[in-house]
Write a protein that binds this DNA or RNA. Structure first.
Lengths: 196, 196
DNA sequence: GTCTATACGATGATAGAC
DNA sequence: GTCTATCATCGTATAGAC
């Protein structure tokens, strides 16, 4: 990506994260890049195009990251643990982008909205398949797959709302807490408790 | 509350829920009430005042509802189940207001923001006390109280984002799913599994 | 309490020079 | 690729009549 285009994208990510999409103006973004607001339009067609690009790239990277990490993991419980861990890691390590991607859908026009939602549905589908496979094999208790997949994903996504990199816990510690909580919630007393 | 003030509040709730706070204009709200936009300012000092009122009243009602419902319930697990059930019921039965309260904090100035966040912290504190009491008595596994309270609350709050009143499941069914998931997650295999 | 009229600022976006 | 200049629009909010 061209240098300035990248600079603009990063400035937009910072500002959208800090102030929100609507509260951020094109001239603020330009100011943060040391250029005039008209110059933004050489690189992006519109403010929404900038938002859409951020969301699209983030969703694509998130999905690719999960797929890559699940490739060589087998066993339902291990795969689910890995999926949760990936979700948490990606969201906390790309906190700004994932925060924007999950809170600024309102800023998109219908066609862009549908495209991002389709990517999100595809990503959620990976978790839904894992849950369904787990219940089929009796590793997880029978459950409503859709509701629980939403629950699991939002629970972790929420981390991107309050996480502070310099905070009390590391990303790994947080991921482990979520993993254990979620696996226990899915098993509902089934099989043996986790080894201490 | 005076009739028109109430009409304005309801129109604002509908529009803020449907389009978002920033995307909703004062004249749209006025239009929905059949009055001119200037008339709004007789009832509310500003657009933000309207948002703040909605959030404040919602948080107050939510906290009162939880407190009232916990009054006569004893036993850690039963109290936690009741708390989760209340949280879910209130959020799904007041979907629009709770959606606004949890997604439009960005629209508040610093002092109003701090006031709403203080109310939210107080509400979260009730759950944190329940979790802490449960771990002290060994009903729940040792855990990070703050992280899990955030997890539990956001998980249920998220229901207000996708819930459709005419959907496949009733509020009670959804509440039960969340209750079981959360209690199992808190116990982490501790004590006996739930009776089938 | 509600109206009409208006002040005032900011915003996204475009035109055209360099 | 970036600039200056500007457009057109829309927003919140206020003043003052009724």
């Amino acid at each position: 990506m061209a240098a300035m285009k990248n600079t603009i994208t990063q400035a937009a990510i910072d500002l959208f994260f800090k102030k929100g999409y609507y509260a951020t103006s094109i001239s603020e973004i330009a100011g943060a890049c040391g250029i005039q607001k008209a110059s933004i339009y050489y690189h992006f067609a519109s403010k929404e195009d900038l938002l859409f690009t951020i969301m699209h790239d983030t969703m694509a990277a998130l999905t690719a990251y999960l797929r890559r990490n699940l490739e060589r993991v087998s066993g339902i419980e291990k795969r689910m643990r890995r999926a949760v861990s990936c979700h948490v890691h990606f969201h906390l390590e790309h906190q700004k982008e994932t925060f924007i991607a999950s809170s600024e859908l309102r800023g998109l026009c219908r066609s862009n909205y549908l495209e991002i939602v389709a990517m999100r549905d595809q990503y959620e589908g990976i978790f839904q398949e894992l849950i369904a496979a787990g219940t089929r094999r009796g590793v997880f208790a029978p459950c409503d797959v859709k509701i629980l997949s939403y629950a699991i994903l939002t629970l972790c996504t929420a981390g991107a709302f309050w996480f502070k990199p310099e905070g009390r816990l590391t990303v790994d510690e947080i991921a482990t807490i979520y993993e254990n909580f979620i696996i226990s919630g899915l098993k509902q007393g089934r099989i043996e408790p986790l080894p201490a």
